[in-house]
């Protein structure tokens, strides 16, 4: 397992390096580049700006600047927000919890529903349920998440009045029940696309496993079909889903951004949008890099989990 993980880790580090280069390039594309902060609030003279540029080392060759920028990033110095002067990492950190809560809830919901639908579709292949699930998944994958959010608010908040139309909690309440109440709708919205993805992959994985020789062996032992399914097929079919889970980070983050916007959920996605509208480039850049890092970490975690779960890698 160790060589496998070391190789994966090496690949992730390499990828992170390329990611950081892209990030650096975008940073320098911004109007005024790293100087934007000073250029925008411009009650400074050109001389002042030049002096600051020199102080910031912006007159030096780009590779040197990149190396230094990367070094600062690695050291946790991601710059300060234009808006409130707080360190970028601190700003991101204070919004991360809400996003993670939303993403985690939606993921659990999607895994539960998606696996169930996928398994049922696989064992009742070509049944009416299977067709409806397949077509339903395709439609779900085509629905803009934010619009589904609007429809959800319309149905459950405006028409039925069951769920709050936004925010993480009622001001002044903040009880656990109140928070859960607020969580339902956005989690459901974010889970839609994920459920579709999980059901499709689960179905395919299950179909794959069901046709394997060892399933026939299990039947030949005299195991009832249901036990063949639970004891032999399920674990094998779930294994590749670990990889699928690892690949969900970009979809989840993108979905969270719009879901948070629709439901005024105080997470990283909304912070990103707010920062864009305030031209708060350090935070925008920070979140961009942070989300890419989350994607990479998600992949790496999935690889590690897979290595632990699959005896062929664990012991191989």
């Amino acid at each position: 397992m160790a060589p496998y993980l070391i190789r994966r880790f090496g690949q992730a580090v390499l990828l992170l390096l390329v990611v950081s280069m892209i990030g650096f390039a975008i940073l320098h594309l911004a109007p005024g580049g790293p100087m934007a902060q000073y250029a925008i609030g411009s009650n400074m003279s050109q001389e002042d700006l030049d002096r600051i540029a020199q102080q910031l080392g912006l007159d030096r060759p780009l590779p040197v600047q990149y190396a230094e920028w990367l070094w600062r990033m690695l050291g946790g110095d991601w710059g300060t927000s234009f808006r409130d002067g707080q360190p970028v990492l601190h700003v991101i950190g204070s919004h991360l919890g809400a996003t993670l809560q939303l993403m985690l809830t939606a993921t659990l919901l999607a895994i539960f529903l998606g696996c169930w639908i996928g398994i049922l579709g696989a064992i009742r292949r070509y049944s009416v349920f299977d067709y409806l699930a397949t077509i339903g998944a395709m439609v779900a994958l085509s629905i803009p998440t934010f619009w589904f959010g609007l429809v959800t608010i319309f149905v459950f908040s405006v028409e039925l009045g069951w769920l709050p139309a936004g925010n993480r909690e009622t001001v002044g309440d903040g009880s656990l029940l109140d928070m859960l109440h607020h969580l339902i709708a956005p989690a459901m919205v974010l889970a839609l696309v994920e459920t579709a993805i999980w059901s499709r992959f689960m179905r395919s994985s299950m179909l794959d496993v069901v046709n394997q020789d060892y399933i026939r062996t299990a039947r030949a032992k005299g195991l009832p079909r249901f036990k063949v399914l639970t004891r032999h097929a399920l674990r094998n079919a779930l294994l590749p889903m670990i990889t699928v889970a690892g690949l969900q980070m970009p979809t989840l983050l993108g979905g969270a951004l719009v879901t948070e916007t629709v439901f005024t959920w105080p997470g990283m996605g909304r912070l990103f949008l707010d920062s864009i509208s305030y031209r708060d480039y350090p935070v925008v850049m920070g979140i961009l890099m942070f989300s890419a890092a989350m994607v990479l970490i998600g992949n790496l975690l999935a690889d590690m989990l897979y290595a632990v779960a699959d005896p062929r890698i664990r012991l191989g």
């Binding site: 990611v19 975008i26 970009p250 979809t251 993108g254 961009l288």
Partner: peptide
């Protein structure tokens, strides 16, 4: 690695 909506909005 960049979620496309993030990248798109930043750009």
């Amino acid at each position: 690695c960049f979620p496309s909506i993030f990248l798109l909005l930043a750009l």
